[in-house]
Amino acid sequence: MVLLLQYTLIFASVLLLVALGGCVSEHSGVINLGLEGIMVMGALGGALVMRFVPYSSATAGFGERILMFLLVFLASVALGMLFSMLLAVASVSFKADQTIVGTAMNLLGTALATVVVKSMNTAINPNDHSSEISYIEPKKAFLSNIGKFELNWFVVVAVVMLVICFIMLYKTRFGLRLRACGEHPQAADSVGINVYKMRYLGVLISGFLGGLGGITYITAGVSVWKFENGVAGFGFLALAVMIFGAWHPFKIAGAAVLFGMFRALGNVYNGIGFLKDLKIPSAVYLMLPYIVSLIVLAFTSKNSKAPKAEGIPYDKGQR
């Protein structure tokens, strides 16, 4: 049961971070379907730091652990934001179709990460054609054991981000302006708010959060990541979480915990007596989050609370 809680929390954190990213972007008026790709790039950033910064858990003091954590954090965020610029440039400045661009980013993220990791591995060892990075040791830097419970620091980050996002969206000048751009960009423009700038910022923040979600995902339970696999649709699950959470941070958090639990079942059902006795094939557990999200979407999409202007490129000339 402790294990179920632990996995639920970590997967919920992934979904929460990424869904918050989607939420901020959509509040600014841009639908971010490229979250999956952003996650992959964020994961790549963090994994590269863990691969190349020397670290040994046996000798590392608290300061070194913090340093490692910060470096991983920054690398993920940086790559996530950099990659999200692809969406911002295309959809805000060039008014490209956000669905096409988002889809392309997902494919590009996985392809790019695979090429980078493979050529890196091959360069180091000519016989190594894998797309894997292993980070067993450095990962320990940001894991703390509380009794049997293993706490990944990124869970704490997710909670902090939740609070920050809520305050940012609903209590600050920036949030008011951002939401105005997603609801009624012409109104925002008429009072002198730069809609393009706000949308760029919205997408960049989603890159920040998506990147964090990516690194959290690949450090959840495993210590080796094969980049060819991408992030298994988590970017889209996060969008389902966001829709279920009606674009509101706290409701998103609730939805993330629910979905996180279904995902966690796939990791731990073997350890839970009655589930093990049911003898359901493991593939069913793997499918569970996707099936649940389809059902949830079917019931929640009818009365959508989506920002009114999302997905519509803003054109100053057209009023």
Partner: peptide, 21 residues
């Protein structure tokens, strides 16, 4: 021994991205 076949995936993905423009 230097490159990987996924370079083609990269090009295809890039082409989709550009098609958005």
């Amino acid at each position: 021994s230097h490159y990987c076949a996924q370079i083609s995936d990269l090009i295809s993905a890039m082409i989709i991205y550009l098609c958005g423009f």
